[in-house]
Simulated scan of single mutants.
Amino acid sequence: MSRAMSIQQAVRIVIEENPLYVTLLSSGLVNMSALARSIKPLVDSIVEKDTKVFTIVKALERLSLNYKLINEYPDIMRGLSNAEIITYSGMGEIEIALTDENLESLKKLRDMVTAKNTHFIILSDGSRLRIIAPLMYIANVMPNANVPEYGMVRIIFANKAPVGIVTFLVQVMKANQITAQHVLRYDNDVYIIVEREKTAPLLNILEKLRRMPLITQQSR
């Protein structure tokens, strides 16, 4: 009969099968509890029993001591290190039907935002529009709208945005308990819209990524 696999062994297998997890764990760019909850279903499947998040966290902490700094995404890190990052506070998002009346309001909003040289985003599914713009301008054209406040982070890459940047950023945020409302790529720019209180933690993570050395070797 084969020997049952330990939780520590299972955690190692899960982590080492995902280059992103290895990079984050080795560099300290991860919330251990968030990562433990994320990989728990896989760990449970391997050990064939229900494991505790606390136990997985301890396994992750022990595993992290075995790594030197590992960077499996040098192109992305290089792109981020050379990028310009701009933050917009007081952003709101509304959803409206695609009607003539709403299009007229949208035109007013666009003219106001354009006049102030401020960014706004419009997403459409053919029947409805999602508009992300400064709250003060949304209130001017739609005074009765109940709009939550968001922060928007714009990453302007010096050259073409790295391949896989959106997926990478989504996973990094998830590993740090940050859920983005939107992560959008347009030309060489990436826009991230998050809850207002998550803006500062997101900027902190991005700054750490920008300073991360381009090292790919590892020691286990």
Rank of each mutant, 00 (worst) to 15 (best):
M1Y: 06
S2Y: 08
Q9N: 11
A10C: 07
I15C: 02
Y21C: 03
T23W: 02
L25Q: 08
S26L: 07
N31K: 11
M32I: 11
S33Q: 14
I39L: 09
K40E: 14
V43P: 06
V43C: 06
D44V: 02
I46F: 04
V47Q: 06
V47D: 03
K52E: 14
V57D: 08
A59M: 08
L60R: 11
R62S: 13
L63E: 13
K68L: 09
Y73K: 04
D75E: 15
I76W: 07
R78G: 11
L80N: 03
I85K: 10
T87H: 05
A97D: 13
L98K: 14
L98R: 12
L98F: 13
L98I: 06
L98E: 15
D100P: 05
E101Q: 08
N102E: 12
K108H: 11
L109T: 04
T118N: 01
D125N: 15
M136N: 10
M136Q: 12
Y137K: 00
Y137E: 15
V141I: 15
P143M: 04
A145H: 06
E149C: 00
Y150H: 10
M152R: 05
V153W: 01
V153L: 06
V153C: 00
R154E: 15
N159T: 14
K160A: 14
A161P: 13
V163M: 10
G164D: 10
F168M: 04
Q171R: 15
A175L: 05
A180L: 06
V183I: 15
R185E: 15
V190A: 12
Y191W: 12
Y191R: 10
Y191K: 10
V194T: 12
E197Y: 09
K198R: 13
L202A: 07
L203D: 04
L206A: 08
E207T: 11
R210D: 08
R210H: 08
M212Q: 12
I215W: 06
Q217A: 13
S219V: 12
